[in-house]
């Protein structure tokens, strides 16, 4: 056992965490908006748009993320008109290519989760809201959306963890996040197994914290499922 080596590797790999965190949070944030948007289109009565949304989800769920990333990164660069357009300002940077690929990917998976969540909102609650005079946007904003999202949260938490794991692929398009740094270290010392194990531990720690966070969020969002807090009254205190 070479504790010093493990420790210095650990510290070195930690320098990749900020980039990973950026990739994850940006992709998840934009991907979530995209997911809600796509889920709503798919649930709408607008046949053509719904069909296009279905096609998008189908393609992105049916192909490996690595292919999507290579198509966006190396593939789009093949065309001169893309390289001459304003899009190139973003696409020429691996950072934005990675974000674009991750966003589109999580948007597709996320939309299915949210669609499931929205569909699982009990009819009774919607009827009750209608009876109370809510309709349209108000009904959606106050009832369908919050309940649907709450239902979708556990599955969405899973998707977040998958996203953290997916960022390791960014190393393949030259990004120096945790896995990218691990590869650089391997090329310097050739001690592959040790370095990979340390990297694995870092990912496990991050995902552990993320799982806690989602659990806490779930708890926070479902006050109606919790026991009512016991308030200590002077009378109760006196009874003892």
């Amino acid at each position: 056992m070479d504790i010093d080596f493990y420790w210095s590797t650990f510290l070195e790999l930690l320098t990749g965490v900020p980039l990973m965190a950026q990739l994850v949070s940006l992709s998840l944030a934009v991907g979530f908006v995209l997911a809600v948007f796509v889920a709503l289109i798919r649930l709408s009565r607008w046949r053509l748009a719904s069909g296009i949304a279905y096609g998008y989800v189908y393609v992105f769920r049916g192909t490996p993320l690595l292919v999507q990333m290579f198509l966006i990164y190396y593939g789009l660069g093949q065309f001169e008109w893309i390289r001459e357009s304003f899009l190139w300002v973003f696409l020429r940077q691996p950072y934005w290519c990675a974000i674009l690929a991750f966003t589109l990917n999580t948007g597709a998976y996320g939309s299915e989760i949210i669609r499931g969540g929205l569909q699982s909102v009990p009819w009774g609650q919607i009827e009750a809201a209608r009876a109370a005079g809510m309709s349209g946007w108000l009904l959606f904003r106050r009832i369908t959306m919050p309940i649907g999202i709450r239902q979708a949260l556990p599955a969405y938490g899973n998707e977040m963890i998958l996203m953290v794991k997916a960022t390791s692929l960014a190393s393949i398009i030259t990004m120096l996040e945790i896995t990218g740094i691990a590869q650089r270290l391997i090329s310097q010392s050739y001690r592959a197994v040790e370095i990979l194990v340390v990297a694995g531990v870092i990912y496990l720690m991050i995902n552990f914290m993320l799982t806690r966070l989602v659990k806490w969020l779930e708890h926070w969002l479902s006050p109606h499922l919790r026991d009512a807090p016991v308030v200590a009254t002077p009378a109760a205190a006196l009874a003892h």
């Binding site: 190396y74 660069g77 020429r92 691996p94 393949i172 990218g180 650089r184």
Partner: peptide, 18 residues
């Protein structure tokens, strides 16, 4: 410095202007 898996990939990016 950007690390690539193959030289062919840095050629693609050189041509692409990245």
């Amino acid at each position: 410095v950007r690390p690539y898996k193959t030289t062919e990939q840095h050629d693609l990016d050189l041509t692409a202007g990245r």
